[in-house]
Amino acid sequence: MEKRGNEHASPWTPSERELERRQIRRALTKRKIVIASLSSLIVISLLATVVVTSPGFQVVRQTFFDFHYGQVVIKTVSRGILVNLLLTIVASILIGFIALVLALLRTTKSAALVPFRFLATVYVDIFRGVPLLLVILLVGFGVPALRLTGMTNSVLVLGTIAVVLTYSAYVAEVIRSGILSIHPSQRAAARSLGLSQAQTMRHVVLPQAIRRVIPPLLNDFVSLLKDTGLVSILGVTDAVRAAQIHASRTFNYTPYVVAALLFLIITIPLTRYTDKALHRTYSAQNAQGEA
């Protein structure tokens, strides 16, 4: 983003008129700040009054926002969220790799790869269309039931596999849309310089495509982190499961709120960053002014 005007150290002596304008601009900015603060103050105090004076407030506070109980459970719940984080990181590496292969297969024109292209399409159709929770249950409980030798029974590993299976399909589609969004003239230019199909993909199309889909990929990353909470259903002691264990013992739901807050601490910076990245991509494409 360019700075509007030349408020700081302009290379020329500003004219009378420009100085006047700057004065007006500053006054307008000040007014905007005052209005925004006033309106925020009013809205927030109104909300606070309504909440605090409402009849159920005390009960709600004790059941959901018990500060002392929160301090007691935060240790185990944080240990749980480390599991979510670990799962997210391991899964996203695997997803990135598998999704890239799927996206390349789905966009290839090579005759030898036709069967794989077909399989990749079927794969994506299936795993985009089935609820993640079902996949987790199928893999987490179904695979051990097969009693395959050498197959792990670790719920953590099986849960990760289920998440990877599903998210690879989502991410493959995001990457594929990026690949398809690159104008054919880029390919033509690369091919006419003698680059092969594969080299054109590797050096010209893919780098631009990935850059273009970074914002939606970050979105998927945030969703992935949240969805790792679903593997708790297999008995993985992640943040959700840890909170659940506490809550079911005491019938106090503060542990859930603690888990939610811990998720937010990670996801809010990520979503803010995604917004920024999106804005960057957007303004790079529309370098035509700010209006």
């Binding site: 033509a188 230019a189 690369a190 310089l193 003698g194 092969s196 010209v204 780098p207």
Partner: peptide, 21 residues
């Protein structure tokens, strides 16, 4: 082999088509 042929002749386009990245 089209790639081998294109190694010997190149084309410049109306719309430049430089690689922006």
């Amino acid at each position: 082999d089209g790639d081998a042929v294109r190694r010997k002749l190149t084309m410049v386009f109306q719309s430049f088509n430089l690689f922006p990245h």
